[in-house]
Computed example of a mutant assay.
Amino acid sequence: MAMTLRLTDEQDAALTRLANAQGISKNEAATRAIEEKAARISREVEVRRLTREAIEQYGPLLDRLAQ
């Protein structure tokens, strides 16, 4: 699907620097940045979920060990 991305001059300059540093097109740099951010958010959500589960499961035991 085609999409137009509107950027400020500063954002375009940052995207250009990012693309040049990686030796890729600005389109590829934008695509990779989006995919990397989405993956990072997914990992953070999963870590929070696992942390909540661990606290629920092991919280009472850790409280007893702390005493």
Rank of each mutant, 00 (worst) to 15 (best):
A13L: 03
K37M: 14
L15C: 12
S42V: 06
D63R: 14
L61E: 03
A13N: 07
I55D: 09
N20Y: 01
E56S: 11
A13T: 11
E35D: 10
T8Q: 01
R49D: 08
T16Q: 15
I24G: 00
Q22H: 02
E36V: 04
R64E: 09
A19N: 05
L62G: 00
E53S: 03
A14M: 11
A66G: 02
A13Y: 01
R52V: 03
T16V: 12
M3P: 01
L61W: 00
R64G: 02
Y58P: 02
A39G: 09
Q11K: 13
I55Q: 10
A2S: 15
I34G: 06
R17A: 15
Q11C: 05
V45Y: 04
R64S: 06
A33T: 11
L18T: 11
K26Q: 11
A14C: 10
M1Q: 11
A29F: 02
L7V: 04
L15M: 14
A19E: 05
N27L: 00
A21T: 11
K37T: 09
A30L: 13
L50R: 14
A19G: 12
D9V: 00
K26T: 09
D63T: 08
E53G: 04
K26S: 05
L5N: 07
M3W: 12
A2V: 15
L15D: 10
Q67M: 05
L5R: 12
D12H: 08
M3F: 08
R48D: 05
N20K: 10
E10K: 05
D63V: 07
Q22R: 12
A38G: 10
D12K: 03
E10I: 04
R6N: 13
R64D: 01
I55L: 13
S42E: 15
L18Y: 10
G59W: 07
D9T: 03
E53T: 06
R32L: 01
R32F: 08
A39H: 13
L62C: 04
E44W: 06
A14N: 14
D9Q: 07
T16R: 15
A30W: 12
E28N: 03
Q22I: 01
I24K: 00
E53L: 06
A54V: 07
T51C: 05
R40L: 15
E46F: 01
R17L: 10
V47W: 03
R17C: 11
A29C: 10
R64Q: 08
N27S: 03
T31V: 02
E46R: 09
A38I: 14
M3R: 15
